[in-house]
Design a protein around this nucleic acid. Structure first.
Lengths: 205, 205, 205, 205
DNA sequence: CATGAATGAGTTTTCATTCAT
DNA sequence: CATGAATGAAAACTCATTCAT
């Protein structure tokens, strides 16, 4: 009976992985349950032994992403280094996570679409995920300011831009795989934290 | 014949606007031709007098967006002011365009989704749109560096981040309307161009 | 627009009639929407222009039956003749109605089945139909007793048996078409009202 | 080997009883094999060790009913009392049987439905059951007439009405549990055999 | 041109039945 | 024998698209 639990869960993961691969390839909208089954090497009906509906597959993909995001945030909050560095680490970890799971990352756009309207079942609370990212980043920004490494007054709006920079690069990569995600983390840190202006150059826009 | 052309075009625009409104509300996936017709106050079949298919409606929405983007870029390249300022103007114009057309902006996520896979007819060349934005921004970044306002060596990667910052904030707003787009442009300019580091603070990451 | 209403209604009736024919032939459980469409000479999807679901077809059949029943009862209550005679008329009218619509009558058993459990949509309030029949019969029984034609004390239980006699003969006809419905009304009246006992024979069981 | 046979048979009966309970509750159409298995406390596949198919379960329920009916008829034909009394006994026995097995009785409507069309395997020969009932009743009616207790000329048609009265009351009870089956037997006997007309009242309709 | 009824391909979902463990 | 995961046939229902009026 113990193995049952394991098998059930393992099978669920297998199917979900297959689903994520197909979603990444064809997009959620164009993916039929049968495509997922074929990718997983099982019969159509078997998908329903692990997932209640097509939408539940997308919800599960979201859950996987949310879990990865939570991991990233958990690691980020555990250190004792200067806040700027911890912030840089957070950005790097977030990008690394996306790069580690390119298929899940490619599904992101479908999660956004499903998050905005609702496929009944799970509301896909995308909002929370970003809220937590922003919160963590804003917190580190403020600490870094306190530590004198960033200018005073930074907060939520700046955090939105930092988080946005990552997601926005992601969008460009999704639309045009020619855009590289490689150096992304470094560039984001550089641009957002160090700034682009010349040493001694003008301060404001 | 002239009025015919005008009428045809006007009707097409009316329907497209109706479609964009519904797409913004329900999402493209959940929008049926009949919903668009109802929103436009016409009969289902009449939509087909202006658009060849459901996908063509989305393609037209994309075209509208692409057109607005082109306008933004056209304006940006016409001035004689310092490049940093022109860059700031470009960011502001891009954000203003999105804010001016919130419904079209809300459809963006569906355009991204359709851009990534093939919605039959028009491939929705999202890639080009962002490529042009990046090109324009990268160009201005380099000029600004030449003019001594930004540090040397800035280019495509930095442009990707700047463009990404805008799109990424947009994503957050789409997921969570609580996020404000108001001051966005200013913050993006501030963060990306001026940088967040304290005056005299550390230079690199 | 007026013709629209008529056409819509006429089309609905046509489809319903087709459905009743197929239900009578194959039974509701074994009838696919496509069978109904084929019988009506239209396409599957067109059935859905008039009926929201398969169950709605059965509900509509029930409505038709309920309507016919109401007609029967309405006529029965309109006369000035002696109550026994009006009762006999009621029985005859009820049987005549069933004989007039043999297909609808054959569907009865499916309506009973659906009435006992519920195909969501319409609860198929079979109970009311029989309640009204019993009420009308009980009423006439009491009047006839008052008029001295029937023994005193007759009421609901006897009405249940009278109504039951009709339905029960129907059941036997449904199971075995060899059973004739022809003289049924007469026999029911004879058995129930006049009784089977010999003149001057024993009174009670 | 003997115990094997017994066990097999006992298990079959257990499952059948479970099936009848579920059929009574949900109706045959809405009952899945899994529901039956759950009610019987066994696994889905195990049902197939005793029954070849879902329809066979219904057929078995029919067989159980047919068996009970045969018992009723067997007892009825064994006595030496006056035919009217034996007839009254038969009616009472038939009603008592139904009252003893309310779930099986509730399944009746599904048996009727299945009897009228072909549920594959066994044709559920409902017709015979009623034919035998009618035969027995007609026989007793004729004897009672011969014995001078009922008027001459009674036969099949009257038997159909007597049998029908029982089944028809059953139908009303099925549709509306508020209808009581308690005094039913007595009322049927009273109405059909003694008649409702006032002593010395009019003879015919 | 405008309409909306008609069509039928396409999908999801269910569930009886099988069979390896 | 018992089990329940796996299968895939079957059906309901949807909706883009067409076209007669």
């Amino acid at each position: 009976m113990a193995p049952k639990r394991v098998d059930r869960e393992a099978r669920r993961e297998e199917i979900l992985s297959a689903a994520v691969r197909v979603f990444a390839r064809r997009g959620f909208a164009a993916t039929r349950i049968e495509d997922v089954a074929a990718e997983a090497g099982i019969a159509k009906g078997s998908v329903y032994l692990s997932f209640g509906s097509r939408d539940e597959l997308l919800a599960a993909a979201f859950a996987r992403l949310a879990e990865r995001s939570a991991d990233v945030l958990a690691h980020a909050s555990a250190q004792g280094a200067p806040a700027v560095e911890r912030l840089a680490s957070l950005v790097r970890a977030a990008v690394a996570m996306l790069a580690d799971e390119p298929d899940l990352t490619r599904v992101m756009v479908d999660l956004w679409a499903a998050g905005r309207h609702g496929g009944a079942a799970a509301p896909l609370d995308m909002a929370s995920v970003y809220r937590e990212y922003r919160g963590a980043v804003a917190d580190l920004l403020r600490r870094a300011a306190d530590e004198g490494d960033l200018r005073p007054g930074v907060g939520e709006p700046e955090a939105t831009v930092v988080v946005g920079a990552i997601e926005g690069c992601l969008v460009q990569w999704l639309m045009d795989p020619g855009v590289r995600l490689d150096g992304l983390a470094g560039t984001v840190v550089e641009v957002c934290l160090s700034g682009l202006r010349a040493e001694g150059g003008p301060t404001g826009p």
